[in-house]
Design a protein around this nucleic acid. Structure first.
Lengths: 185, 185
DNA sequence: GGTACCGGAGAACGCACGTTCTCACTCGGA
DNA sequence: TCCGAGTGAGAACGTGCGTTCTCCGGTACC
């Protein structure tokens, strides 16, 4: 039974996401993605004619999933002010997941931002979208707009340092700082 | 006149730093470093027997220079409390330098952290050292110890978002947040 | 039953690059 | 002057990998 395009795409993106996130883009060969997904090279190149397009699809799908997961988590919190802080609880949960290795877009920017305009753009767009999510939460909580970019920096700092220092507890520092900023505003 | 080892090393590290920082490690070939430095491949491999050792030397020298530059900048500020905030002024100056492309260790972690234990360790050590510098400034200003990791997150967030968003103004948000945290403590 | 297409497996190609080797040259010392 | 150790230029080697090509078995349709 031949694989239809949709499931082939899903399997490819699942494998690509696992491998690219865990090891970086350049150290994962197309052949390894073929092996992991069970999709033939011919099919792979029919669906994604170049590696960069597979990377683009991987980051695009992950962006939807990542922001959707965050949105669902904070939506479950009642108090609008608590929703702002819940962002950092969500980060802490994420940092503790096995295989956590930082932000896929920051890692991608570090690896390919200088050589791939596509990756640089996707990273910028993802960060802008995340900053927008925070701005909405801040606004809905009746907090001053100026708070949002500050919370954004705390979240970014937490992601990067949780990864580099291999310390999920960075989320707690970020949460404490965010609470102090909220209280002071 | 043959090049003595010290100047050969310096030229190699200068070239390596320019290229590795600007484009990432993997997209710069040893031959390009030879060309840029004017040091022959044979000499290059005599001084650094493998690319990873050149990367290690590059990151090591940059660490000393980076932290030294920060320390010198804040040391020139009189008031101990202003010294803490001066960190963010220094970051802003750095972000505005041409060729700024984020934190070399974060970029290196994203690119090679999963495949090179050396790079992962150097990134961790550098971040720990930077966090230590902040902790000393906070302590010298008579501020509570708990503030230091929070300022660290703001600084990390500023570096990452200034790079990815291509917006040096992120330093201002970080400075404002830092001032609020200092004031609230 | 034949035949023309489709998809999969994987070999092949071309190139880039880390590392090593060759070879001719220089220069200090007997 | 001769010799040999060290140096630089760059060719060569081996490997990995992105991409394409070949071949073959199956399957749908006449």
């Amino acid at each position: 039974m031949p694989l239809d395009d949709d499931t082939a795409r899903t399997r490819l993106l699942d494998t690509a996401e696992d491998l690219f996130y865990a090891r970086g883009v350049q150290s994962v060969g197309m052949d390894e993605i073929r092996g992991g997904s069970g999709v033939s090279l011919k099919r792979l190149y029919a669906l994604y004619p170049a590696k960069e397009q597979l990377v683009e699809a991987y980051l695009g799908r992950r962006d939807l999933r990542w922001r959707g997961s965050l949105a669902a988590f904070v939506a479950a919190v009642d108090n609008p002010r608590d929703r702002v802080l819940a962002v950092f609880d969500w980060l802490g949960d994420w940092f503790r997941e096995p295989g956590f290795r930082g932000c896929a877009w920051v890692n991608g920017y570090g690896e390919l931002g200088a050589t791939s305009a596509v990756v640089a753009r996707l990273a910028r767009e993802h960060k802008r979208a995340f900053a927008g999510q925070l701005a909405e939460l801040v606004s809905a909580a009746g907090l001053p707009d100026a708070l949002a970019p500050q919370l954004f920096l705390l979240a970014e700092g937490a992601m990067v340092s949780a990864a580099v220092l291999d310390d999920p507890g960075q989320a707690d520092h970020a949460r404490a700082a965010a609470a102090a900023l909220v209280a002071a505003s």
